[in-house]
Design a binder for these strands. Sequence first.
DNA 1: TATAAGCTTAGAGTTAACTCTAAGGTCAAC
DNA 2: GTTGACCTTAGAGTTAACTCTAAGCTTATA
Lengths: 151, 151
Amino acid sequence: MLKISELSEKTGLSAHTLRYYEKHGLINASNRSEAGYRFYTDSDVRRVQFVKTARNTGFSLEDIGQLLSIRVDKLSHSCQEVTDITRKKLVEVNAKLTELQSMQQTLELLLESCCGGPENATHCSIMEALDAGLLLDKKIAARTEQGGAAK
Amino acid sequence: MLKISELSEKTGLSAHTLRYYEKHGLINASNRSEAGYRFYTDSDVRRVQFVKTARNTGFSLEDIGQLLSIRVDKLSHSCQEVTDITRKKLVEVNAKLTELQSMQQTLELLLESCCGGPENATHCSIMEALDAGLLLDKKIAARTEQGGAAK
DNA sequence: TATAAGCTTAGAGTTAACTCTAAGGTCAAC
DNA sequence: GTTGACCTTAGAGTTAACTCTAAGCTTATA
Ligand SMILES: [Zn+2]
Ligand SMILES: [Zn+2]
Ligand SMILES: [Zn+2]
Ligand SMILES: [Zn+2]
């Protein structure tokens, strides 16, 4: 039986966060002391660790709520339900990834194009590109079209 | 001279958003009608488009504020200031990218491991992995160690 | 027994970037 | 001269996941 601070230390989640998760129905302390202190059983701890692992994997607290309801009654739920949640998350992650990769490429091109020196920015190609609506893309397209095979 | 709805249409930013940007010091309408209606000059429009482009590139409104103050007085600012802002953003983007790639890999592995079928989830390997704290990683590590060269 | 550390709750604050609402003034058209 | 679309402002609401505060018990230690 762990007190909240002990569970906090064990899981790396703050006591605040643990109470927050409880308020949102994700976890619970099986027992309370007479004074109302939370006491967590091993089973409680495992559930918290499940939440933490799912959180690290990118699932939202809402997703985790669904996963937890499957977890407590596996007989009434199917693998498909689990993969639906997982696949939905993967789709989200992939979308963000695509967006970020595009940003990354743009930022790298911008950095390549600018001298980064101490002279004034009247000639700065980053400012120019932002002013021109990033026709960097067009430059790349042109380069690719012309150059043929990359490298 | 464009009214706000016209600028909105031209830029794809809502009038709400344009007023929001103004309130936060990013843009401005050079003129107002007697009744107080905003009127935007070509120069205003270019500034708004700069903001939009920078936003699409991933810069925060705060970053954009800095870029704009460079933009209006390029003589007093250096290319280095511009690359500092850009590089800082790239570092952030790379960090998020790393995190998301790790999530992506985990989610893909989870999906591979689960049958996704309609039977009950008592044997679900996704649930098992989440319960076990994702020792998938360990499986991968083991596989990599053993297998040597990939593919 | 007193001090400090730790626990409780309800509820407010944080962050970023919007997004929307309310209450009212303006303008073009019919 | 009255609709209806558009404009104004100030300010509230949204989202997610915390994070913190206040006010007040409880518990262990000295
Ligand atoms: Zn330069
Ligand atoms: Zn430059
Ligand atoms: Zn299965
Ligand atoms: Zn399964």
